[in-house]
């Protein structure tokens, strides 16, 4: 029993990191109907940036988090401006290829500059609590806490602010929004920045939990979160979280039962199986088409 609760906590921890990244995928998809494959690499860059930051000046966690989110957010907006905006009206295939290409560019630049995985320093004194046979570390509490906080902030922003309303409106009809005199382009950039910032935060939290940072993280972890977003129904925020927790618990379960090399196999098989039965994800809806 204790063991199960322990695993549930692990699943929540992993799920919340996936969730943060998946929200970034879904945000961008919601606004532009575009799968941003490069998002996983922004997550990876988030971890790297934080590492670099700590190497230069050791900052407290909250400051490091804010700085990382800010810088990677700007990078996300820049990416949108340079690579995605020129092809916004091109066929969907172009968008997929471009984002795939951008992701690989970011990954390989990082690889070229830092060929070996690096160790992440600890940012705070990690203490471990025991109650009734369950161990929980302050790290876990912080990771889950920060993720939940960010998710709640995002939800409030999307649902209760004017900006959030505009973002939701963009998801419905981009042309109409710009006709209303709203600077659609700026909002889109902002959404990208927001998504990237969430991804970067996840990168930091991930690096704290599993303190090895490498350039392949973007594909190994970032794309997992992508699976999560797709499982839940991409473009749907709740779906993204649902998918993240499903994936997180599946992975935690599989790690306890199978060798860790099966992790990818199981995650991607889960995706395929779910898409076979729900081609547009659990909460997603097929696009309607007027004939």
């Amino acid at each position: 029993m204790d063991y199960i609760i322990q695993q549930v906590i692990n699943a929540i921890q992993l799920g919340s990191i996936y969730g943060l990244i998946a929200l970034g995928y879904s945000l961008v998809y919601g606004v532009l109907s575009m799968m941003n494959f490069a998002h996983g690499d922004l997550f990876m860059l988030g971890a790297f940036f934080c590492l670099l930051l700590e190497k230069i000046i050791p900052l407290p966690l909250w400051l490091a988090l804010l700085l990382t989110m800010l810088v990677i957010g700007c990078l996300g907006a820049l990416l949108e401006r340079l690579a995605y905006r020129p092809i916004r009206h091109a066929p969907k295939v172009s968008a997929i290829i471009t984002s795939l290409g951008c992701g690989l560019i970011l990954e390989n630049i990082t690889l070229a500059m830092s060929p070996y995985p690096r160790h992440m320093p600890t940012l705070f004194q990690n203490s471990i609590f025991h109650f009734h046979g369950i161990t929980i570390s302050s790290l876990q509490i912080i990771v889950i806490g920060i993720s939940l906080l960010l998710m709640i902030l995002l939800d409030v922003m999307i649902r209760c602010t004017t900006l959030g309303m505009v973002i939701r409106a963009l998801a419905w009809n981009r042309l109409m929004v710009s006709l209303l005199g709203i600077p659609a382009n700026r909002i889109i950039s902002f959404t990208f920045a927001l998504g990237a910032a969430l991804g970067a935060a996840a990168g930091l939290l991930y690096a704290l939990t599993y303190p090895v940072v490498s350039s392949s993280m973007g594909i190994a972890i970032g794309w997992k979160a992508f699976i999560a977003a797709v499982i839940g129904g991409i473009g749907n925020m709740r779906g993204a979280l649902l998918g993240a927790f499903i994936l997180g618990s599946t992975e935690v379960m599989s790690i306890t039962m199978l060798p860790s090399t099966y992790r990818d196999l199981i995650a991607y098989s889960l995706l395929l199986i779910i898409l076979i039965f729900k081609p547009y994800g659990i909460l997603g809806e097929p696009p309607t088409q007027k004939i």
């Binding site: 109907s33 799968m35 969907k92 997929i96 794309w223 992508f226 699976i227 797709v230 991409i234 060798p259 090399t261 099966y262 990818d264 196999l265 991607y268 098989s269 995706l271 395929l272 898409l275 076979i276 081609p279 547009y280």
Partner: peptide
């Protein structure tokens, strides 16, 4: 068979998942 039901983005993801599955199956 999967391409009958889905297309566009989702088919791209399915092929991607397929690639990852084949690769990690070979690794195992």
């Amino acid at each position: 068979l999967l391409s009958f039901k889905t297309r566009g983005d989702y088919l791209a993801i399915i092929t991607l998942a397929f690639l990852m599955i084949v690769k990690s199956a070979l690794e195992n």
